[in-house]
Amino acid sequence: MGVGIRPAGADDRELIVRLLDAAFQDDPVSGWVFPGEEYRRTTHHRLMAAFTDVVLAEGRIDLTEDGAACALWLSVPADGPGTADGAEGSGASGATDEAVRLREAVDPANPRVEEITRLVVESHPRDRAHEYLWMIGVAPDRQGEGLGGALVRHVLGRCDREGLPAYLEASSARSAKLYERLGFAFTGRALDLPDGPRMWPMWREPRTRRPSAS
């Protein structure tokens, strides 16, 4: 039986924030940004809410019909993104400005919110238009059922039809292996968070389909 997938709307915001918060509580990168279980439990959801708001406004969120998994996507043009929220600006200046704004909105006393935002924006490929998988979250009690893979393939099929590459940053070696099975490959340049975990930027070229024999 296939996985039912629908586009999320504004009415799904709170569900998506709760889902992402639960899915990433034990993620290595989330643990670095918000060290300590209690701190993470009470603060992490603010960052997930900020990400959700950006993508609801600037991109799209796919949601399984049972509400157990979601994927946040942005369509990035060539020479973009200038900042994480699509605002004007590019390069180091734009990345720094966006990082400061996000820290001030989410957790003003936490420099790691700013640091990770700046690193991700600065390292994002800018030379070709592509689909960017910002985040994908699966409810902890539903992980391992193939929901995440179904969500990713839902967009990769369109990428292949339209000749679009796709890009993401895997936040663990385990997730990087899963993305490899979907055709993504490590770009060769890791993102090492200061005194923290490694992230794996990954790129996927569109797969051309051979015409059927007549």
Rank of each mutant, 00 (worst) to 15 (best):
E104V: 12
A170F: 12
L182S: 14
A23K: 03
V138I: 11
V55M: 05
S212H: 09
D192E: 12
G67C: 02
S171I: 15
F24H: 07
A69K: 00
V106T: 04
L151F: 06
T208L: 15
E38F: 13
C70W: 00
E131S: 02
G36P: 08
F34A: 10
M135R: 04
P77E: 05
T42R: 15
S30K: 01
R198Q: 15
A166H: 08
E65Q: 00
A22S: 15
P77N: 02
G94H: 09
A105C: 09
D11C: 04
R207N: 03
A71C: 02
E145R: 09
D27T: 06
V113F: 07
V76S: 01
G36H: 11
A57L: 14
F186M: 13
H44E: 15
D97F: 13
T96K: 13
G9Y: 05
G146Q: 09
D85E: 09
R210T: 15
A109K: 12
A8N: 05
P28T: 06
A23C: 12
V121F: 01
W203S: 10
T42I: 13
R142P: 02
P140R: 02
R128E: 10
S75L: 02
I116S: 05
G9S: 14
E88L: 07
V55Y: 00
L56F: 06
G163R: 08
I61V: 08
D97K: 12
L178M: 10
H124F: 04
G86M: 06
C70D: 01
F24Y: 15
D195A: 11
G146D: 04
E131P: 00
E14V: 14
H45E: 08
R112A: 10
T42Y: 10
L74E: 02
P28E: 13
P211T: 14
E180G: 15
A49N: 12
P125W: 01
H124E: 04
E114H: 11
P211K: 12
G67N: 03
H154Y: 11
R41V: 11
P28W: 04
A78E: 09
R153G: 03
G9P: 13
L63E: 01
A185M: 11
F34R: 01
A185S: 08
P35N: 14
T64C: 02
P111G: 10
A166C: 11
G94R: 06
D97E: 15
A139V: 02
G91M: 06
A185G: 11
A190D: 15
G80C: 00
M1K: 08
L151Y: 03
Y179H: 11
E37M: 05
S123P: 00
V152I: 13
V55P: 00
E114I: 07
L164F: 10
E115N: 04
A166T: 05
A150T: 04
D26F: 04
R161C: 08
G183A: 15
R18H: 12
A176K: 10
A92L: 05
M202H: 09
E115G: 02
P194Y: 14
G86R: 03
A68P: 01
R13D: 07
A129E: 12
S75P: 01
M199P: 10
A69G: 06
W32C: 11
G196H: 13
G91A: 01
G59K: 05
D85L: 03
E205Y: 09
